[in-house]
Computed example of a mutant assay.
Amino acid sequence: MMNRLMILMLASLLAFSCQRNPLKVDVSDVELELTFKSYDDDLFASAENLEEKVAGLQAEYGTFFDLFNHHMIGIGGPEDENFYPQLEAFLSDTMIVNLKAEADLRIDRGRLKNDFTEAFRHYRYYFPGQVVPAVYTCISGLNESVVLADSLIGISLDKYLGADFDYYPRLGLPAYKIRNMHPQKIVPEALYFWAMTEYPISTQASKVIESMIYEGSLLYFVDAMQPEVHDSLKIGYTSDQLEFCQAGEADMWAYLAEHNLLFSTKRMDIKRYVDDGPYTSSFTTESPGRVGAWLGWQIVRSYMMKNPEMSLKQLMETQDYLQILNESGYQPD
Rank of each mutant, 00 (worst) to 15 (best):
L171G: 02
C18M: 15
F90L: 02
R109H: 12
D269F: 10
L99C: 00
F83K: 02
M316K: 05
A254W: 15
Y160D: 00
Y237D: 04
L57M: 09
M316Y: 07
G172Q: 01
E48S: 14
S282H: 12
P188H: 07
V208C: 07
Q331V: 11
D93C: 01
N82C: 11
A101I: 09
I7K: 10
D80E: 14
G129F: 05
H122T: 07
E79S: 13
H122F: 03
Y192Q: 15
L43K: 03
E243S: 14
G162H: 04
L157H: 01
P308W: 10
K185H: 12
Y39C: 07
L233A: 09
P169A: 03
F165W: 06
S328D: 04
E118G: 03
I153A: 08
S311N: 08
A190N: 04
H182T: 09
V27R: 01
D333M: 10
F244N: 00
A254R: 15
V131M: 09
T117K: 11
L218I: 14
E258V: 03
I155N: 00
D231E: 13
L14D: 11
G296E: 08
I299D: 02
Y61S: 05
G289L: 00
T285H: 14
D333A: 12
A47G: 03
I299Q: 02
V291C: 00
V132F: 03
C245L: 07
T280N: 06
I235W: 00
L5D: 13
P183W: 11
K266H: 15
M252H: 02
K234V: 08
K306I: 04
T137M: 04
C245H: 01
H259V: 11
K266S: 15
R106K: 12
R272T: 15
V291H: 00
G154I: 00
S232Y: 15
M310L: 11
G110N: 15
D158R: 00
H230N: 11
L32D: 12
T318P: 00
L161H: 01
F127P: 06
M252P: 00
V229K: 07
P332F: 05
Y61C: 06
L218N: 09
G289S: 02
N307D: 08
P174L: 01
L10S: 09
E258Y: 07
D231L: 09
S311Q: 08
E309P: 01
E327H: 14
Y84H: 05
R109M: 14
F283I: 10
L105H: 14
T35C: 13
P288Y: 00
A45H: 13
D104C: 05
E81L: 08
Y192D: 15
P188I: 11
F68R: 01
Q314T: 08
D104N: 10
E317L: 09
M181Y: 06
S145A: 11
G296N: 07
I153F: 12
T285F: 14
E317N: 13
M72D: 03
E189Y: 15
K207N: 08
D158S: 01
F127W: 04
E144A: 11
I75Q: 05
N260L: 13
M2S: 11
D93V: 01
E88G: 07
L105P: 11
L32P: 10
E317A: 10
Y214A: 05
N260D: 15
V291Q: 00
F16I: 14
A11W: 13
D275R: 06
P188E: 09
L261I: 13
L325N: 03
D231A: 10
A293M: 06
N98W: 05
L5Q: 14
D166I: 10
K313M: 12
G110Y: 15
G248A: 09
G62L: 01
E210G: 02
